[in-house]
Amino acid sequence: MTTAPARPRRKLHSNRIAVVLVTPALLLLAGFTVAPTVYAFVLSLQQTKISGGLFGGDPQAVFVGLENYAAALGDAEFWASIGRMLAVAVIGVPATVILATAFALCLDARGARLVGFSRIAIFLPYAVPGVLASMLWGFLYLPATSPIGGDVIDFFGSREIFFSVANIAVWGVVGFNMVILYTAVRGLPGEIYDAAMMDGASELQIALRIKLPMIRPALVMVTLFSVLGALQLYNEPTALRPLSNAITSSWVPLMKVYSDAFVQNNIHQGAASALVIVVLTVAATVLVNVIGRRLQGRAS
């Protein structure tokens, strides 16, 4: 027998197996991402109207076209919430990337001691759930309970609040990003360092001139994670909200969605706001990716 006819059959088999293997993931994706999105889209085209009488009798959902989207885009508070989220991001994203890089390079330095312990210690905050971390930091910030000078510094001041929120977020994720960067640095071939040292490069020069440029792909990824994390800001401000007057119910976009849907009790407006944010988030992700690729392309 020749092997020729067997080939297509084998291809057919592997295709079929691929389909079977992919199906569970696709089903979950369809059930838990696509279907809710479609449902949200349907909801976003409707509004609840009551039928008259003192208490309105039977409320009905009626089709209103793009009215909810117009309301979302025309709502000054919606854009203000995006502005506040960006303010936290401008503080938090660079802080996360710079601190994570610094920790990774320090741990990889030749003279570093207690590397294992330090790595765990820096990573540990990532294991603390965001809401718990926010409550802990809330205690640290509040004047009556603060051991870190809350009675001198107003951590809930109109300007300080952005740093207070960013600080919690950075504290939580810096360890995770550090591990990604540290792994990337450890993966670099040792001969390069030997060559550099023979050329008389100092430890600092090796770190900044050799290691840093070579882990650029990991840096782009860490930046992307941080930007995405900032866009999804919700836990920290929500947990801090009852502690002071500084944070409103629509302080960041995701809180605005929650507020629309579950405080204003307008699920339709909430769906429209949520979909607008999805579009903006995808756009931001693509943008960061493109910029990252450009930078990488220029490097190589």
């Binding site: 809330g138 205690f139 509040l142 004047p143 009556a144 309970t145 009852p242 502690l243 002071s244 007057n245």
Partner: peptide, 18 residues
């Protein structure tokens, strides 16, 4: 004062005589 009720801050202040 202008701090909200029910926060940790408020409880501590109600308890310590502030």
């Amino acid at each position: 004062k202008s701090d909200p009720f029910w926060s940790t801050q408020w409880s501590a202040e109600m308890n310590d005589g502030t």
